[in-house]
Amino acid sequence: MRENADGQSEYSAFVSVNWSRYLRVAVLLTGDRHRAEELLQDSLVRLYVHWKRVADRGDPNAYLHKMLVNGNVSWWRRRRREQLVAEVPDRVDPGGQPERHERLRAALRSLPYRQRAVVVLRHYADLPERQVAQILGCSVGAVKTHNSRALNRLRELLAWDSTDDDVKEKETVR
């Protein structure tokens, strides 16, 4: 592929082939499709600005993961402040997603942001613990702790039926 001086073609190729994957990561991180697209586009614009430096270092994927996680944290903090004066209405899913999707989405939303990031990066993006630690700026031990606590929390909210693979809501009323 022809390259111009600032690697625009390389950037365009990176975006086009990775868009779907990162949009899905962003959806899991944010719990909202529109917010995910906004977060991903903002992160990709920042990636464009720093593309040459990031590409030269050889890891735009790690950079983008970090942008997504940090961008989501910033948004999360703003949202929590906003909630002090106005409750965010329940999300209406126009696509009519299956009920179990909504349960899992709600369970993920209930996790603290770092635990949620660990769950998404470890169990969806399939990144090794060391890389997750680099993205979150913490130790591998902290990643393990976040992962363990997140799994405990998800276990409380969801039940893994022994006879089928579906995530099922725990029958006990909490």
């Binding site: 868009w19 949009l23 899905r24 990561v25 899991l28 499709r33 899992l104 969806y124 693979d165 995530v167």
Partner: peptide
Amino acid sequence: RLATALAELAEAEIP
């Protein structure tokens, strides 16, 4: 199971 459920949830989004 969690990975499978997350993948299913994520794949439900059509980018």
